[in-house]
Design a protein around this nucleic acid. Structure first.
Length: 282
DNA sequence: CGATTCCCCTGATAGC
DNA sequence: TGCTATCAGGGGAATC
């Protein structure tokens, strides 16, 4: 389940491997991951575009496409991997049905950029740069937790007016972009905060600790190229290393690394929150 | 505004 | 062995 460190890992791979390449063909037979009628649009319009730049906004991967120096021809390709989406580079894996290839962008160096997605929850949107940038998917996103503008002051101003449970607020992409179920649990454990604490009841000290915990856990995971619980892979199909050093996520019944108390898992809507009932109290 | 529930999808896993 | 029920989860929509 790609969150910020996993998506950033994908993007840094892509920057090395496909920036500068020209797209020379497109294939897909999975309409549900695109907006209506996008497959035929992509087939007829995307050929000849060069991948000029690749970026990330929250969990969204952005491909800036250009044709020569024509500014008005600038296009944007947005890919959101959701739960099981992967971006793979190469061509040897394309024909194997076990790779669940849902879309293929053929490149000018005899290789391809393929989108794999077992569950078909992923999203691919192609269009004019301005139009894509104004979609709620991007426009409504909160700040990126690793961005310079994401100061501790900014963080406090975003969290403290909220009445919702802190775990829910951390998962809300319109508050902060990029945190998902794994890193919200990990950060709350580090900061010793119960996931159900109402956000407006967090003390100034707790908020500072949570801010530092979020940044720390994301940077640590980034260094290890993300977490692979089940599904995440980088563009070469390799798993990330963070899960081996995780603190609470998916450790129900195992001892807390600080106090030895058994880690609990509680349902929060359809998601689950993992925490130490001893260290993390409301 | 906030809380809750359901839906999308399908491989993995647990229970019988 | 083989069947069936349940689960995982990002995000959006619907309802109260």
């Amino acid at each position: 389940m790609p969150e910020l460190p996993e998506v950033e890992t994908i993007v840094s791979d892509l920057c090395k491997k496909v920036v500068g390449r020209e797209i020379i063909g497109f294939w897909s037979q999975t309409p549900r991951i695109f907006p209506k009628n996008q497959i035929s649009k992509l087939k007829s319009q995307i050929n000849g575009y060069q991948i000029a730049k690749i970026d990330r906004r929250g969990k969204n991967i952005l491909f800036y496409l250009s044709q020569g120096s024509k500014i008005n021809s600038q296009k944007l390709l947005l890919i959101h991997p959701k739960l099981t989406g992967r971006l793979l580079i190469g061509n040897h894996f394309l024909k194997n049905p076990k790779n669940y290839i849902r879309a293929i962008f053929y490149l000018d160096n005899k290789t391809a950029l393929a989108f794999s997605d077992v569950r078909k929850f992923g999203k691919i949107i192609f269009g004019d740069k301005k139009k894509i940038e104004s979609l709620p998917d991007l426009k409504n996103l909160g700040p990126d937790p690793l961005d310079k503008i994401f100061t501790v002051k900014k963080f406090k101003s975003l969290i403290s007016p909220q009445k919702r449970k802190i775990k829910l607020v951390l998962l809300d992409q319109e508050v902060i972009a990029g945190i998902g179920n794994i890193y919200s649990d990990e950060a709350l454990w580090i900061a010793k905060i119960h996931p159900f604490t109402p956000s407006n009841q967090l003390t100034n000290h707790q908020l500072t600790k949570l801010y530092n915990a979020i940044r720390k856990v994301l940077k640590t995971s980034l260094r290890l190229r993300g977490s692979s619980m089940r599904d995440f892979r980088d563009t070469s199909g390799r798993a990330g290393g963070y899960i081996k050093i995780r603190r609470v996520y998916d450790r129900e019944g195992l001892p807390c690394f600080r106090c030895g108390t058994k880690i609990k898992r509680i349902k929060m809507n359809v998601r689950s929150a993992h925490f130490c009932p001893q260290c993390q109290r409301i």
